[in-house]
Amino acid sequence: MTFAERVRECVGEIVHVATIVDTVPGILLSSNNNFLTLRASSAVGYGPTGNVATLTSSTAFVRTTE
């Protein structure tokens, strides 16, 4: 199982995706070898509500709290 496949098991959960430049909080929508996609909201501090795609290869770790 790859990192992306393992992260995919958390789809629907609130996660924090940590990259070298920032940590993006949101609800995980999808995960594949190219991108992790989150629905971020202003309530969790990452700009306006919307989908954020982070490069899977640049992701250091994903934290889940559920």
């Binding site: 199982m1 990192f3 393992r6 958390c10 770790f61 994903v62 934290r63 889940t64």
Partner: peptide, 25 residues
């Protein structure tokens, strides 16, 4: 808690789960 070829799952003291990408470790 779990080890894959390119990831490690850690359980933190606070109870949260961290999936670490070994590509960026």
């Amino acid at each position: 808690a779990e080890v894959g070829s390119w990831y490690v799952v850690l359980t933190e003291a606070a109870g949260s789960t961290v999936i670490v990408n070994l590509e960026n470790t």
